[in-house]
């Protein structure tokens, strides 16, 4: 931006080439994907390198993350779901760290682009469908036929189940994307008010208002960043449970 006082809440989502490679340029988005993977890998591996019987703080954080996701997967998908534990853990950590990177000023938020969240959601969807059919054969289709439903409304229920199943990747991806996008725009708009009001004579006296709001929203956005990663991982575990146990 040429003028630093100009408020542009959309600019933060723009892709800029770092290494131009045409269609597949290494952009700021790619950079933060690499940083996300790098940080997660480096932290988890290095903090647990000593394999201490009594963990220090860094190792304890890694172990807590591990047990948190492990409990989530085994609670929702049972013992059989644990073979998807690395998958769910990777998703959780990727979304969590990408969201939290987005909270640092001037950092790009990978999860604010619908294509990224949609790709992750489609990956979950494909894993569930492929594993569901591979494990249960056509028995996987029982997922759409809830037991205990009267036969005359069963077709209707089955159609609704199919639609809700097919809309999962959309709801999963839009939930994450919209939360992050809306949060970042709101934050930027309110922060922008501080600057714009500062240049409006007597209105400048009111600038603490948007400042307080901005601080509040920042705290809220940290919560959203963590919560959305949790929701994404939790829903993934529950969808995986559907693939393992299709009968309701």
């Amino acid at each position: 931006m040429a003028d630093p006082t100009k408020v542009d809440p959309i600019h933060q989502f723009a892709l800029t080439d770092i290494v131009p490679l045409g269609e597949f340029s290494f952009t700021n988005s790619s950079l933060f994907m690499v940083l996300t993977t790098g940080l997660i890998g480096a932290y988890l591996i290095m903090s647990t390198q000593k394999r201490a019987m009594v963990p220090n703080r860094l190792q304890l954080v890694s172990e807590m993350l591990y047990e948190f996701v492990a409990n989530m997967v085994s609670d929702s998908a049972g013992k059989a779901g644990m073979k998807f534990f690395p998958f769910v853990f990777s998703l959780f950590m990727f979304v969590l760290v990408a969201n939290l990177f987005g909270m640092i000023p001037f950092f790009f938020t990978v999860t604010s682009h619908i294509i990224v969240t949609f790709a992750l959601a489609m990956l979950v969807f494909i894993v569930v469908v492929v594993y569901g059919f591979w494990k249960n054969g056509f028995g996987f289709l029982r997922l759409f036929v809830p037991s205990g439903v009267p036969i005359y409304i069963l077709p209707l229920v089955a159609v609704i189940e199919v639609i809700s199943f097919l809309s999962r990747p959309i709801s999963l991806s839009v939930r994450l994307f919209a939360n992050i996008l809306a949060g970042h725009i709101t934050l930027k708009v309110f922060a922008g008010f501080i600057v714009s009001m500062g240049g409006l004579g007597w209105f400048a006296l009111l600038t603490p208002l948007p400042l307080i709001l901005t601080i509040g929203i920042t705290a809220l956005e940290f919560l959203v960043a963590v919560l959305q990663a949790y929701v994404f991982a939790l829903l993934t575990s529950m969808y995986i449970n559907d693939a393992i146990h299709p009968g309701h």
Binding site: T27, T36, T37, T48, R51, E63, F85, F87
Partner: peptide, 25 residues
């Protein structure tokens, strides 16, 4: 571009987690 880099980074993350980090922890 984002799909390509997401595939590369997330794939790398998955391998790193499933082969190294998670077995270690």
């Amino acid at each position: 571009g984002q799909l390509l880099w997401l595939a590369i980074t997330f794939g790398a993350l998955y391998l790193l987690m499933s082969r190294v980090a998670l077995p270690q922890i």
